[in-house]
Amino acid sequence: MSTLTIEQIAVGYGDSIIIDGLDVTIPENKITTIIGPNGCGKSTLLKTISRLLKAQKGSVYLDGKAIHQLSTKDIAKRMAILPQTTETPSGLTVYELVSYGRFPYQKGFHSMKKEDVEAVQWALEVTGVTDFSDRPVEALSGGQRQRVWIAMALAQETEILVLDEPTTYLDLAHQLDILLLLKSLNEKENRTIVMVLHDLNHASRFSDYLIAMKDGAIVTEGTPNEVMTAENMEAVFDIQAIMTECPLSNHPICLTYQSSKGV
């Protein structure tokens, strides 16, 4: 059980406030995707949720408790984060990197316990990277590497997964792989997933809940059917979108679009 509620937060970098007075509740056991144009504050919101940024006002609540009052190590057992950019240290093998996901459960110089090894093996297995667990992470392709980082987050065994643009820099097939993996984690294990995606059609197809942001505020939120409308696309992205239905998910998708500002 975990509810993530965001109440009246104001966040920014230094003096520039990006989000001011935002409220939202992340539905439990669902996939929630934050969408919006560049610079709308979606990454900032995600970073605030995952305590990478501290809200200047307001707070993020995990089960009713303010997140900055909880021990960060306890949060690490409940919420795993995949940042937008990850830099791979050289010489680290896949197995080693994924086993770092067990750190929140370890103390001092203690090595991996049986349940730690099992959690790591499971994470390697579901992300399909078991075969190269002995290879250095830097030797892998971008898609494989992203799966390894996800495996590390999974090894944390948390109810909540927070991912910032997990499919960026990946080709079509690898994007799909990652999103199908997240979908199955959500369906089979009821993981709550919160992420930022740039691809609207992916967001619509794989999410249960969408949050559309613009200029640091939420324009609209709801199911993909509610959010993915031509009117909302106009309001959020300033585009005239031609919407249709995805034959695979029955969610609305954007077929093509043109600028609202005229050609």
């Binding site: 306890d74 984060i81 996901g101 750190f103 929140p104 001092g108 987050a153 944390q156």
Partner: peptide, 19 residues
């Protein structure tokens, strides 16, 4: 131990419960 996690990047370290 904490330095190892920090060497993976600050955001990763926070995610794993470090300060």
């Amino acid at each position: 131990r904490s330095i190892t996690l920090l060497s993976l990047g600050e955001e990763i370290a926070i995610g794993l419960g470090q300060r």
